[in-house]
Amino acid sequence: MITGQTAAESEMLEIRCLLNYIFETSGYDLRNYAYASLRQRLKAAAFSARAGSIAEFHQIIRGDGKALQQLLSSIATGVTGLFRDPDFYAAVRKKVVPILRTYPSIDIWHAGCATGEEVYSMAILLKEEGLYDKCRLYATDMNESMLQKAHSGVFSSSLLQHYNDNYQKSGGKETLSLYFRRREQECCFSESLKKRIVFGQHNLVTDSSFKEFQLIACRNVMIYFNKQLQERVFRLLHESLCSFGVLGLGRGETLKFSKIEEFYEPLDARQKLYRRLT
Protein backbone atom coordinates (compact mmCIF):
# COMPACT_ATOMS: atom_id res chain seq x y z
CA MET A 1 0.00 0.00 0.00
CA ILE A 2 1.26 3.48 -0.84
CA THR A 3 1.36 5.66 2.24
CA GLY A 4 0.20 9.26 2.21
CA GLN A 5 3.65 10.76 2.27
CA THR A 6 4.96 8.80 -0.68
CA ALA A 7 1.74 9.53 -2.60
CA ALA A 8 2.40 13.26 -2.13
CA GLU A 9 6.05 12.83 -3.12
CA SER A 10 5.34 10.82 -6.25
CA GLU A 11 2.73 13.37 -7.31
CA MET A 12 5.31 16.11 -6.87
CA LEU A 13 7.76 14.19 -9.05
CA GLU A 14 5.11 13.74 -11.73
CA ILE A 15 4.37 17.47 -11.66
CA ARG A 16 8.06 18.40 -11.89
CA CYS A 17 8.44 16.11 -14.85
CA LEU A 18 5.43 17.69 -16.57
CA LEU A 19 6.72 21.22 -15.91
CA ASN A 20 10.09 20.34 -17.43
CA TYR A 21 8.33 18.98 -20.50
CA ILE A 22 6.21 22.15 -20.83
CA PHE A 23 9.31 24.33 -20.56
CA GLU A 24 11.25 22.31 -23.16
CA THR A 25 8.43 22.22 -25.71
CA SER A 26 6.74 25.60 -25.28
CA GLY A 27 9.29 27.83 -23.57
CA TYR A 28 6.78 28.65 -20.82
CA ASP A 29 8.58 28.31 -17.51
CA LEU A 30 6.10 27.40 -14.80
CA ARG A 31 8.70 25.85 -12.53
CA ASN A 32 8.77 28.85 -10.21
CA TYR A 33 5.03 29.16 -9.88
CA ALA A 34 3.60 28.56 -6.40
CA TYR A 35 3.40 24.79 -6.15
CA ALA A 36 0.06 24.44 -4.33
CA SER A 37 -2.03 26.58 -6.70
CA LEU A 38 -0.29 25.27 -9.81
CA ARG A 39 -0.92 21.71 -8.62
CA GLN A 40 -4.58 22.54 -8.19
CA ARG A 41 -4.84 23.96 -11.71
CA LEU A 42 -2.99 20.99 -13.18
CA LYS A 43 -5.26 18.56 -11.34
CA ALA A 44 -8.36 20.40 -12.59
CA ALA A 45 -7.00 20.34 -16.16
CA ALA A 46 -6.16 16.63 -15.81
CA PHE A 47 -9.64 15.95 -14.50
CA SER A 48 -11.31 17.67 -17.47
CA ALA A 49 -9.03 15.73 -19.83
CA ARG A 50 -10.26 12.58 -18.04
CA ALA A 51 -6.78 11.65 -16.88
CA GLY A 52 -6.61 9.72 -13.62
CA SER A 53 -3.24 11.14 -12.60
CA ILE A 54 -0.71 13.80 -13.53
CA ALA A 55 1.44 11.12 -15.19
CA GLU A 56 -1.49 10.04 -17.34
CA PHE A 57 -2.21 13.68 -18.18
CA HIS A 58 1.44 14.09 -19.19
CA GLN A 59 1.03 11.23 -21.68
CA ILE A 60 -2.07 12.89 -23.15
CA ILE A 61 -0.20 16.17 -23.58
CA ARG A 62 2.75 14.47 -25.26
CA GLY A 63 0.46 13.04 -27.90
CA ASP A 64 -1.63 16.19 -28.44
CA GLY A 65 -0.22 19.66 -28.97
CA LYS A 66 -3.67 21.21 -28.65
CA ALA A 67 -4.03 19.82 -25.12
CA LEU A 68 -0.82 21.62 -24.15
CA GLN A 69 -2.09 24.92 -25.57
CA GLN A 70 -5.35 24.47 -23.69
CA LEU A 71 -3.46 23.82 -20.49
CA LEU A 72 -1.29 26.89 -20.96
CA SER A 73 -4.25 29.18 -21.50
CA SER A 74 -6.07 27.70 -18.50
CA ILE A 75 -3.01 28.46 -16.37
CA ALA A 76 -2.66 31.97 -17.74
CA THR A 77 -6.32 32.70 -17.07
CA GLY A 78 -6.84 35.30 -14.44
CA VAL A 79 -10.21 35.81 -12.85
CA THR A 80 -11.07 39.44 -12.42
CA GLY A 81 -13.99 41.84 -12.46
CA LEU A 82 -14.92 45.49 -12.71
CA PHE A 83 -14.02 47.31 -9.47
CA ARG A 84 -12.97 44.00 -7.89
CA ASP A 85 -12.33 44.88 -4.23
CA PRO A 86 -14.27 48.18 -4.21
CA ASP A 87 -12.36 49.33 -1.13
CA PHE A 88 -9.16 49.33 -3.16
CA TYR A 89 -10.62 51.79 -5.67
CA ALA A 90 -12.08 53.91 -2.89
CA ALA A 91 -8.57 54.13 -1.43
CA VAL A 92 -7.11 55.00 -4.83
CA ARG A 93 -9.63 57.85 -5.13
CA LYS A 94 -8.88 59.16 -1.68
CA LYS A 95 -5.14 58.64 -1.38
CA VAL A 96 -3.59 58.15 -4.81
CA VAL A 97 -5.56 60.65 -6.91
CA PRO A 98 -4.22 63.67 -4.93
CA ILE A 99 -0.68 62.44 -5.66
CA LEU A 100 -1.43 61.92 -9.35
CA ARG A 101 -2.85 65.45 -9.60
CA THR A 102 0.62 66.86 -8.96
CA TYR A 103 2.01 65.41 -12.21
CA PRO A 104 1.67 67.16 -15.58
CA SER A 105 1.32 63.80 -17.30
CA ILE A 106 0.73 60.38 -15.79
CA ASP A 107 1.77 56.93 -16.93
CA ILE A 108 0.05 53.96 -15.30
CA TRP A 109 0.88 50.28 -15.70
CA HIS A 110 -1.51 47.42 -15.09
CA ALA A 111 0.90 44.50 -14.98
CA GLY A 112 -0.85 41.18 -15.59
CA CYS A 113 -4.11 42.81 -16.68
CA ALA A 114 -5.81 39.53 -17.71
CA THR A 115 -9.09 40.42 -19.43
CA GLY A 116 -8.76 44.10 -18.60
CA GLU A 117 -11.57 44.76 -16.12
CA GLU A 118 -9.25 46.44 -13.65
CA VAL A 119 -7.72 48.81 -16.19
CA TYR A 120 -11.21 49.85 -17.31
CA SER A 121 -12.11 50.40 -13.66
CA MET A 122 -9.09 52.65 -13.29
CA ALA A 123 -9.97 54.51 -16.49
CA ILE A 124 -13.48 55.22 -15.20
CA LEU A 125 -12.11 56.45 -11.89
CA LEU A 126 -9.61 58.73 -13.62
CA LYS A 127 -12.36 60.17 -15.85
CA GLU A 128 -14.48 61.00 -12.85
CA GLU A 129 -11.53 62.68 -11.16
CA GLY A 130 -10.81 64.75 -14.27
CA LEU A 131 -7.40 63.15 -14.78
CA TYR A 132 -8.07 60.82 -17.67
CA ASP A 133 -6.88 63.08 -20.48
CA LYS A 134 -3.44 63.50 -19.03
CA CYS A 135 -3.01 59.79 -18.33
CA ARG A 136 -1.79 56.96 -20.44
CA LEU A 137 -2.68 53.47 -19.20
CA TYR A 138 -0.51 50.54 -20.22
CA ALA A 139 -2.21 47.18 -19.75
CA THR A 140 -0.01 44.16 -20.28
CA ASP A 141 -0.38 40.42 -19.99
CA MET A 142 1.59 37.42 -21.21
CA ASN A 143 -1.46 35.80 -22.75
CA GLU A 144 -2.38 36.99 -26.25
CA SER A 145 -5.98 35.77 -26.25
CA MET A 146 -6.73 37.47 -22.94
CA LEU A 147 -5.23 40.70 -24.25
CA GLN A 148 -7.51 40.49 -27.26
CA LYS A 149 -10.49 40.11 -24.99
CA ALA A 150 -9.24 43.01 -22.88
CA HIS A 151 -8.79 45.14 -25.98
CA SER A 152 -12.30 44.36 -27.21
CA GLY A 153 -13.72 45.78 -23.97
CA VAL A 154 -16.70 43.45 -24.12
CA PHE A 155 -18.28 41.90 -21.05
CA SER A 156 -21.43 39.89 -20.42
CA SER A 157 -24.58 41.80 -19.46
CA SER A 158 -25.21 39.15 -16.80
CA LEU A 159 -22.40 40.75 -14.75
CA LEU A 160 -23.97 44.22 -14.80
CA GLN A 161 -25.70 44.09 -11.47
CA HIS A 162 -22.60 42.83 -9.68
CA TYR A 163 -20.45 45.45 -11.43
CA ASN A 164 -22.92 48.21 -10.56
CA ASP A 165 -22.77 47.20 -6.88
CA ASN A 166 -18.97 47.23 -6.94
CA TYR A 167 -18.92 50.58 -8.74
CA GLN A 168 -21.21 52.17 -6.15
CA LYS A 169 -19.22 50.75 -3.23
CA SER A 170 -15.99 52.02 -4.75
CA GLY A 171 -17.30 55.59 -4.57
CA GLY A 172 -18.42 55.91 -8.21
CA LYS A 173 -19.77 59.39 -8.91
CA GLU A 174 -21.94 58.77 -11.96
CA THR A 175 -23.80 55.74 -13.23
CA LEU A 176 -21.81 52.91 -14.72
CA SER A 177 -23.96 52.81 -17.86
CA LEU A 178 -22.33 56.08 -18.93
CA TYR A 179 -19.22 54.16 -19.93
CA PHE A 180 -20.48 51.36 -22.16
CA ARG A 181 -22.98 50.52 -24.86
CA ARG A 182 -25.29 47.61 -24.26
CA ARG A 183 -26.09 45.22 -27.09
CA GLU A 184 -28.49 42.65 -25.61
CA GLN A 185 -26.30 40.02 -23.94
CA GLU A 186 -23.12 42.04 -24.22
CA CYS A 187 -21.76 45.37 -23.10
CA CYS A 188 -18.86 47.15 -24.74
CA PHE A 189 -16.82 49.95 -23.17
CA SER A 190 -16.99 53.20 -25.11
CA GLU A 191 -14.17 54.43 -27.32
CA SER A 192 -13.75 57.52 -25.18
CA LEU A 193 -12.83 55.22 -22.29
CA LYS A 194 -10.46 53.12 -24.40
CA LYS A 195 -8.62 55.86 -26.23
CA ARG A 196 -5.82 56.30 -23.71
CA ILE A 197 -5.33 52.61 -22.91
CA VAL A 198 -2.49 50.78 -24.62
CA PHE A 199 -2.64 46.97 -24.60
CA GLY A 200 0.55 44.99 -25.10
CA GLN A 201 2.12 41.63 -24.49
CA HIS A 202 4.60 41.46 -21.63
CA ASN A 203 5.71 38.48 -19.57
CA LEU A 204 6.61 39.38 -16.00
CA VAL A 205 8.57 36.13 -15.68
CA THR A 206 10.96 36.78 -18.55
CA ASP A 207 10.66 40.36 -19.85
CA SER A 208 12.27 43.49 -18.42
CA SER A 209 11.22 47.01 -17.51
CA PHE A 210 10.06 49.11 -20.49
CA LYS A 211 9.07 52.48 -19.06
CA GLU A 212 8.85 54.53 -15.88
CA PHE A 213 5.45 54.91 -14.27
CA GLN A 214 3.79 57.07 -11.62
CA LEU A 215 1.41 54.26 -10.65
CA ILE A 216 1.72 50.50 -11.06
CA ALA A 217 -1.09 48.08 -10.25
CA CYS A 218 -0.10 44.43 -10.12
CA ARG A 219 -2.94 42.79 -8.30
CA ASN A 220 -3.38 39.10 -7.57
CA VAL A 221 -0.76 38.17 -10.12
CA MET A 222 2.17 37.36 -7.88
CA ILE A 223 0.14 35.07 -5.60
CA TYR A 224 0.66 32.47 -8.34
CA PHE A 225 4.47 32.73 -8.12
CA ASN A 226 6.87 31.29 -5.55
CA LYS A 227 8.95 33.64 -3.39
CA GLN A 228 11.96 33.51 -5.68
CA LEU A 229 9.97 34.51 -8.74
CA GLN A 230 8.04 37.09 -6.72
CA GLU A 231 11.33 38.76 -5.82
CA ARG A 232 12.27 38.99 -9.48
CA VAL A 233 8.95 40.63 -10.29
CA PHE A 234 9.12 43.01 -7.31
CA ARG A 235 12.53 44.11 -8.55
CA LEU A 236 11.09 44.66 -12.05
CA LEU A 237 8.18 46.72 -10.71
CA HIS A 238 10.54 48.72 -8.50
CA GLU A 239 12.75 49.56 -11.49
CA SER A 240 9.65 50.67 -13.40
CA LEU A 241 8.30 53.03 -10.74
CA CYS A 242 9.39 56.67 -10.44
CA SER A 243 10.49 58.17 -7.12
CA PHE A 244 7.41 58.78 -4.95
CA GLY A 245 5.37 56.64 -7.34
CA VAL A 246 2.65 54.33 -6.04
CA LEU A 247 2.50 50.53 -6.17
CA GLY A 248 -0.85 48.74 -5.69
CA LEU A 249 -1.01 45.02 -4.86
CA GLY A 250 -3.92 42.66 -4.24
CA ARG A 251 -5.55 42.69 -0.78
CA GLY A 252 -3.96 39.35 0.14
CA GLU A 253 -0.52 40.30 -1.13
CA THR A 254 2.29 42.03 0.69
CA LEU A 255 5.66 43.68 0.28
CA LYS A 256 6.84 42.33 3.63
CA PHE A 257 8.82 39.41 2.19
CA SER A 258 10.58 41.47 -0.48
CA LYS A 259 13.91 43.23 -0.28
CA ILE A 260 12.33 46.29 -1.91
CA GLU A 261 10.13 46.86 1.16
CA GLU A 262 12.71 49.21 2.70
CA PHE A 263 12.19 51.65 -0.19
CA TYR A 264 8.44 51.97 0.43
CA GLU A 265 6.00 53.29 2.98
CA PRO A 266 2.41 52.13 3.19
CA LEU A 267 -0.06 54.64 1.79
CA ASP A 268 -2.95 52.38 2.78
CA ALA A 269 -1.79 49.25 4.59
CA ARG A 270 -5.08 47.35 4.34
CA GLN A 271 -5.58 48.11 0.64
CA LYS A 272 -1.92 47.35 -0.11
CA LEU A 273 -1.05 50.71 -1.59
CA TYR A 274 2.61 51.56 -1.14
CA ARG A 275 4.56 54.70 -1.98
CA ARG A 276 8.13 54.59 -3.17
CA LEU A 277 10.32 56.79 -0.96
CA THR A 278 13.32 57.63 -3.12
Binding site: A34, A36, S37, V79, T80, D85, I223, G250
Partner: peptide, 19 residues
Protein backbone atom coordinates in the same frame (compact mmCIF):
# COMPACT_ATOMS: atom_id res chain seq x y z
CA UNK B 1 -9.12 35.82 3.93
CA UNK B 2 -12.47 36.44 2.24
CA UNK B 3 -12.74 36.02 -1.54
CA UNK B 4 -9.46 34.11 -1.91
CA UNK B 5 -8.74 30.41 -1.90
CA UNK B 6 -6.29 29.55 0.84
CA UNK B 7 -3.75 26.87 0.00
CA UNK B 8 -1.20 25.17 2.22
CA UNK B 9 2.12 25.01 0.42
CA UNK B 10 4.69 23.08 2.48
CA UNK B 11 5.52 25.42 5.31
CA UNK B 12 3.88 28.51 3.88
CA UNK B 13 0.51 29.68 2.62
CA UNK B 14 -0.45 30.53 -0.95
CA UNK B 15 -3.56 32.39 -2.09
CA UNK B 16 -5.44 32.11 -5.36
CA UNK B 17 -8.37 33.86 -7.02
CA UNK B 18 -9.28 30.89 -9.19
CA UNK B 19 -13.00 30.33 -9.65
Amino acid sequence: PPDYHLLIDRGEFALSIDD
